[in-house]
Every structure is written in C-alpha cells, then in structure tokens.
C-alpha cells in the first residue's frame, strides 16, 4: 500500500503527523493522525504549590 506522510502538520500550535494509506486504485484506504509529542503537564504539575499553577499551566499553549 502506498503511504503519504504529512510531517509536520503546519500553521497550528503543537506537533502533529498524518499518515495516509492509498489502495491499489489510489483511493484513501485509511488515514492516521498522530501527536508525536508529550510534555507531561498531567504529571509534573503534581507536587507544585497550587498558587504557582497559574504561572505554570499557561505554558501548555502560548499561542
């Protein structure tokens, strides 16, 4: 199967990658969106003083 990879996805905040698989007729058989990034706010915010979080979580997305 032919695979077309769009990497990176542009003009948005964040990282993304799309793989499109084409069948023999050249039609789209399936497409996958993957996010090749994880920083881990879900975990590293734990243990930080709660009053500090308003200065940490804005860095989830600065756009």
């Amino acid at each position: 199967m032919k695979k077309i990879t769009i990497d990176p996805i542009t003009r948005l905040e964040g990282h993304g990658k799309i793989d499109i698989f084409l069948d023999d007729a050249g039609d789209v058989a399936n497409a996958y969106l993957q996010i090749p990034e994880l920083r881990g706010f879900e975990k590293f915010c734990e243990g930080r003083p709660v009053e500090e979080l308003p200065r940490i979580v804005p860095r989830i997305c600065g756009v």
Binding site: L38, R39, G40, E42, K43, F44, E46, G47, R48, I56, R59
Partner: peptide, 17 residues
C-alpha cells in the same frame, strides 16, 4: 517549564497521561 518533567519519569508521565 517542560524540564519540570525531570522531577518525574517517563513511565510516571505515560501512566498519568
């Protein structure tokens, strides 16, 4: 800020997220 993750581990981040 992303380096605050060095206070945890990859395994813990994966588990949580």
């Amino acid at each position: 800020i992303p380096a605050l993750a060095n206070l945890t581990t990859r395994a813990e981040i994966m588990e949580r997220a």
